[in-house]
Nucleic acid binder design. Sequence first.
DNA 1: TGATATAACTTAACACTGTTAACCACGCGT
DNA 2: ACGCGTGGTTAACAGTGTTAAGTTATATCA
Lengths: 195, 195
Amino acid sequence: MSLRDDILVESRDMLIKHGFGKVSMRKIAKKVNVSATSIYLHFKNKDDLLLALIESSIEKLSYVLKDEMVQGDDPVAKLEKMTDSFLKFAIENPQEYEIIYMVRHEEMPKYPKEKFEQIRKIYEMLAEIIREGQNKKLFQVEDPLMSAYTLWAQLHGVASVVISKRLDTRIPSGEFMNQAKDHIIQGFITQKTPA
Amino acid sequence: MSLRDDILVESRDMLIKHGFGKVSMRKIAKKVNVSATSIYLHFKNKDDLLLALIESSIEKLSYVLKDEMVQGDDPVAKLEKMTDSFLKFAIENPQEYEIIYMVRHEEMPKYPKEKFEQIRKIYEMLAEIIREGQNKKLFQVEDPLMSAYTLWAQLHGVASVVISKRLDTRIPSGEFMNQAKDHIIQGFITQKTPA
DNA sequence: TGATATAACTTAACACTGTTAACCACGCGT
DNA sequence: ACGCGTGGTTAACAGTGTTAAGTTATATCA
């Protein structure tokens, strides 16, 4: 295993164990028994290292979702499966989930957008399901891609609220997430407006 | 105006202008023509100063929402008004919005929970509207308070995605937010499930 | 008035942080 | 044998939050 890989696994480990704020170049270096500056031979800077971690986390999430994405003909069931998997991943891998959403594109234009292609593919997956539901007159949407993004955003909101423990203590997070899932999916389903 | 106030307005200014990451004790100190350590006479530490900023931002948001919260008998319209105001505040005051959601309760138990009473009151406002809609058989919810939290989380997701510019460039943020609003509110409205 | 306590502020320092420059050792191809 | 790139080093810079100790001015009380 190369030093680059060592750095990656060790920093990922630190990230998951102690959160991103506590990850420092010198600490990583100490862990892999190397001087701090050596890291710069393999990564341009800390952000670049972070990006590598983000990438692999995105890949992991994307893999999980793709894996759960069973074939079937019920778009509603598919959407439920997706939201379940998404939220499950988020609460089971909070630190990894967090770094995916930590970096803001604008603030680091240095990062090539292609790196985020993977995450765009997830949107497209969602859009595909929504499009299918639209064709079957099950979903009431105008633009499936845009709706995929709104779905995504809502899910992210739910996940982030739970992860950052911002939930009222009176409210159990499991029920909260289920309720949220229901509301979110309900929001896409075709309405027969009363009267 | 006291030095404490000077520190507050100057740090708030820095926060809004350059984002939170660039706010440092020494820079604030320089701005108010005082030594960095003087800040510690008025605030326990940087987090404490941050908390003060958060508090006033929450107050501002809470004030805006309460202000827009017109009386009326249409819960749906009220909910729309609320979501509009919420999202409007978020995109018009991105830095202020961000710090509200930056701090995570668990990681700083030092912060007295009462400080966040204000934000809890907003949930209660939402819950009240939802309860009203529930009584009028307009909304399909089990627990209004829990649903208020899911609504809040969904809105937060939408806001945060827009603020952190994580939106696909193909998608105009205005339309995105409108679409999201529709989906979200739709998710609460009573369904006449087809057949 | 004179002593003293307290508040507001300072400087110096500690222990960190990311990052750069300069240097060193080693294996490879010509 | 020479040069050169590759992968590592140490020392240093500039910045961070924070603490301890010292100063100075102001207000209070005998």
